[in-house]
């Protein structure tokens, strides 16, 4: 808190010269205020569920609105399953594409391809959901000969499509920020372009790429509408647990589907906010970790470059 106090005193002093600085300061602090408000309100509204079920809210295996029983394990598992499936598809493709765009693609095409991928990232999730439900799910159903195509696999494929642009964007930026001198040094020693990529570019940007994967994870686990439309929405842990052809019910889908009918102040209402708090916590941790990685990385690079 101390630096904030010092800040306030500093601001008080400079106010006489430029009153505007107070407004600027308040706007800048708004992000801190909003993030704390979010945490506070989710905790407040979700507290009842945590008090009623204790640890069973996290590890209970039944989520039954009719029985007023709320154990979030199948939902947490569903979310993690769908997201990990998506990352298995999206990470290799995304990272390879990023390397290709930065290192191989001729300069004239680079802007064009980057712009197209940015456009892909801007397509709203409801459109992906629509396409997934109407076109992808029937394909999956007929390919695997299962009665319904709204299963974890469909959700994973759709999520992969949605997170590839994020992964390409962030890891592309990381890769192109590798100092030019590094590459030139390797090339001067007689390395081919491929060898330079393998022995210099990838090792140097490894942790940055890890950070981009974590950001992709955070994006994917919070995805709601598209996932909800194709995941099947049955609150079970698949049998066996790696059965991607089983329906699941990810956290985000539960919140979106049940919030409309939950009476304000009821246990169900509180349980949904509890789910929100779980999601908030997961993304908070993932984002903070990614931040730490990036910050340490840039410090390291700065140290080498002086």
């Amino acid at each position: 808190m101390k630096p904030i106090m010092r800040k306030l005193i500093f601001i008080h002093k400079s106010l006489r010269e430029e009153p505007i600085i107070l407004i600027l300061f308040l706007c800048a602090s708004s992000s801190i205020i909003f993030i704390s408000l979010m945490f506070g309100f989710l905790t407040m509204e979700g507290a009842q569920a945590f008090f009623t079920f204790g640890i069973n809210f996290l590890i209970g295996r039944t989520w039954e609105t009719n029985a007023n029983l709320y154990g979030a394990l199948p939902l947490i598992y569903g979310s993690l399953m769908v997201v990990s499936g998506a990352l298995v598809i999206a990470v290799p493709l995304g990272v390879a594409a990023a390397i290709f765009i930065v290192e191989v693609l001729p300069f004239t095409f680079r802007d064009l391809v980057k712009s197209l991928i940015e456009l892909l990232a801007s397509i709203p999730s409801i459109i992906y959901g629509f396409i997934g439900l109407v076109f992808l799910a029937p394909q999956i159903a007929s390919f695997f000969r299962i009665p319904s195509g709204t299963v974890a696999l469909t959700a994973s494929i759709l999520l992969a499509m949605m997170s590839i642009p994020t992964i390409i964007g962030v890891s592309g930026e990381i890769i192109s920020s590798v100092p030019k001198e590094y590459r030139e040094a390797a090339l001067a020693l007689g390395a081919t372009k491929l060898q330079t990529i393998k022995t210099v570019v990838i090792p140097v940007s490894k942790s940055g790429i890890l950070a981009s994967i974590m950001l992709g994870f955070g994006r994917a686990i919070g995805e709601t509408v598209a996932v909800l439309m194709v995941a099947g929405n049955i609150a079970i842990i698949p049998e066996p647990p790696w059965n991607f052809l089983s329906p699941v019910y990810p956290i985000t889908a539960v919140i979106a589907m049940q919030m409309g009918e939950a009476a304000v102040g009821s246990l169900e209402y509180s349980a949904l906010f509890g789910l929100g708090l779980i999601l908030f916590t997961i993304t908070f941790i993932v984002n903070t970790l990614a931040d730490v990685i990036v910050r340490r990385e840039s410090k390291f690079k700065g140290g080498v470059k002086r």
């Binding site: 602090s29 909003f34 979010m38 309100f41 955070g218 919070g222 985000t252 906010f273 984002n287």
Partner: peptide, 27 residues
């Protein structure tokens, strides 16, 4: 202080939209 704001912004950008919706509803 600038670093805390930075962190808060990154975290805000990462909050799932459905959670933002929940917060918007209560608040």
């Amino acid at each position: 202080f600038a670093r805390i704001i930075d962190q808060a912004l990154n975290n805000m950008a990462g909050v799932p939209s459905i959670v933002v919706g929940l917060f918007g509803y209560t608040f």
